[in-house]
Design a protein around this nucleic acid. Structure first.
Length: 138
DNA sequence: CGGGTGACGTAGG
DNA sequence: CCCTACGCCACCC
């Protein structure tokens, strides 16, 4: 199956909408859930394309890098700061490095479910209230 | 049509 | 943990 760019955007938005509060995931994981594991950059591209009015509908701030770092997004932009503010408001701990880099502990706030678990969210059969799903490095 | 770029990721030093 | 190099692909020049 080949995803069109528009459909890829829609898939990305749909997945981002599923991210629970106080949790974060990575661009690459969203790309993987969307069926395109190598299109991690385009996930960010899709979020960049995101209109301001859809902000409250799509928790874009819960998407960070696979290393738990919030992308600088350029020195003149305040996107990273707004993202940090939104995450902190939800209760996510964001640490600031000496160089001003913003990072989140994925072991504590990471949310990396598989496609099957996503389907499980749409149809809650197993009521497992697990926290960090799929903490790879453990 | 070649080259640079980016809200990325992984591997290696 | 830091930085560098490379792969990736849509988009822009």
């Amino acid at each position: 199956m080949s995803l069109d760019s528009a459909e890829f955007h829609a898939a990305v938005y749909d997945i981002v909408r599923l991210i629970p509060a106080c949790r974060v995931t990575s661009y690459g994981h969203i790309a993987k859930l969307a069926g395109m594991p190598n299109h991690s950059r385009h996930v960010g591209q899709a979020l960049k394309f995101l209109p301001p009015n859809t902000n409250p509908l799509i928790p874009w701030h819960r998407v960070i890098g696979a290393s738990g770092a919030i992308s600088s997004r350029g020195p003149g932009t305040d996107g990273a700061q707004r993202q940090r503010d939104a995450l902190v408001a939800e209760g996510v701990e964001v640490t600031t490095g000496r160089t001003g880099d913003l990072r989140v502990d994925l072991h504590q706030f990471g949310w990396f479910p598989s496609a099957a678990q996503i389907r499980d969210q749409w149809q809650p059969h197993a009521t497992d209230g697990q926290g960090a799903v799929g903490t790879e490095s453990e």
